Amino acid sequence: MTGGQGMEWNDQLVGRKSYGCDVLFRVVDVLERDGEEIAILYGADIRLVADAPISDLALMTDKEIEKFEEEYRSLEEESFHSFTADTKQNEDRKNSSSSLSFHLPGRVLHMDGDPRYLKKCVDAYTSLSVPVIGIHCQEKEMPERVSSLIDQYQPQILVLTGHDAYLSSRGKKSDINAYRNSVSFVKAVQEARRKMPSLDQLVIFAGACQSHFESLIHAGANFASSPLRVNIHALDPVYTVGKISYTSFKDSIFMEDILRHTLANEDGIGGVETKGVLRIGTPYRAEMYQD
């Protein structure tokens, strides 16, 4: 369905006709460029930012929106059940040796350029019982803010995400300046590493759709997107670091451990061998929590 002249486009769910409406986008702004109205688009379920002439937009019908949402809802549920089953199995194994222990999963500082995605992610962390502090922060502001936020919240895990995209008109895929927000993510990782240099002291996930993976890893991220410049889902950072949060500091995590819980595959998320941050303590007594 095509919108009429003079309609209010902000917050509308749309597709790009030139791409066959393959991705569901939300219009976040409309700008004028060379006498033409250009819409700024955020992926509704993937961490992609794009722009398109208003003339290229098609309003999605309720039926089309439901089809997109059902597809991603099914994937999200699969990731959730995979994560919770894996976590329960690990807890049962550890508790078999001591029924009097308690667990301290790693605390996450999640900085997100998209307030809608931030809420979605915080809700997911809560469902997974992962301690989280969620901060809405524009991608370009992350390098300036990350250091003070680390001081304030003392996380074991840092997520730097939002929206990104590779723009072929700006250069080759190897050129980090050809990306919308990869430079900002890299600078934020570098600032975080100045504060906490060790990969095991602070575990970092950085990036969004199509981000410059190599630069993020070289800057000091443990995990990043996107090795083959593909899109990642809004919740992929959550399931990536959730696995870290609930893995013992004595155990190493490999990419295959991460990917089975995410909606992306090795084309979308990569990283380096990393230790977990979970701590197990004793004793646990129910009466400790009774008045």
Rank of each mutant, 00 (worst) to 15 (best):
G6H: 01
E8H: 11
E8D: 11
N10Y: 10
G15A: 10
S18D: 04
Y19Q: 13
C21Y: 00
R26V: 14
V27S: 00
V28M: 13
D29E: 13
D29H: 06
L31Y: 09
R33H: 08
D34R: 06
A50G: 09
D51T: 06
I54R: 15
S55G: 03
S55E: 08
S55D: 09
L59R: 11
M60I: 03
K63V: 01
K67I: 09
K67W: 05
E69S: 13
Y72I: 06
Y72V: 11
R73N: 14
R73P: 01
L75E: 14
E78S: 15
E78L: 14
S79C: 15
H81K: 09
S82K: 15
K88E: 13
E91Q: 11
R93I: 10
R93F: 11
K94G: 03
K94D: 10
S96N: 12
S101C: 10
H103D: 10
P105T: 03
P105R: 02
P105I: 05
R107Y: 09
L109A: 07
D114S: 14
Y117M: 12
K120Y: 09
C121R: 13
Y125A: 07
V130R: 04
I133C: 04
I135D: 06
C137W: 06
K140N: 07
P143C: 13
P143M: 08
R145G: 01
I150D: 03
I150S: 01
D151R: 14
D151F: 11
Q154V: 11
Q156G: 11
Q156P: 00
V159R: 15
V159L: 04
V159A: 06
L160G: 04
T161V: 07
T161R: 03
G162D: 00
G162F: 03
H163M: 10
Y166R: 05
S168R: 08
S174E: 15
N177D: 13
N181H: 14
S182K: 12
V183L: 12
V183H: 08
F185H: 01
V186N: 00
V189M: 12
Q190F: 02
A192P: 07
R193I: 06
R193Q: 00
P197R: 03
D200H: 14
V203S: 04
V203D: 01
V203K: 05
F205I: 02
F205P: 01
A206E: 06
A206V: 03
A208R: 00
A208Y: 10
C209W: 04
S211G: 01
S211N: 02
H212T: 01
E214T: 12
I217R: 07
N222F: 07
F223K: 08
F223L: 15
S225Y: 07
S226E: 08
R229N: 13
A234R: 09
A234L: 09
D236P: 09
P237M: 11
V238I: 10
G242C: 08
I244Y: 05
T247N: 00
S248N: 08
F249Q: 13
I253C: 03
I253V: 13
E256F: 11
D257K: 01
I258D: 05
H261C: 03
T262C: 15
N265D: 15
D267A: 12
V272N: 05
K275R: 13
G276S: 04
G276Q: 02
G276H: 00
L278P: 00
R279Y: 10
R279E: 07
I280G: 06
T282Y: 08
R285W: 05
A286H: 08
Y289D: 10
Y289Q: 09
D291E: 11
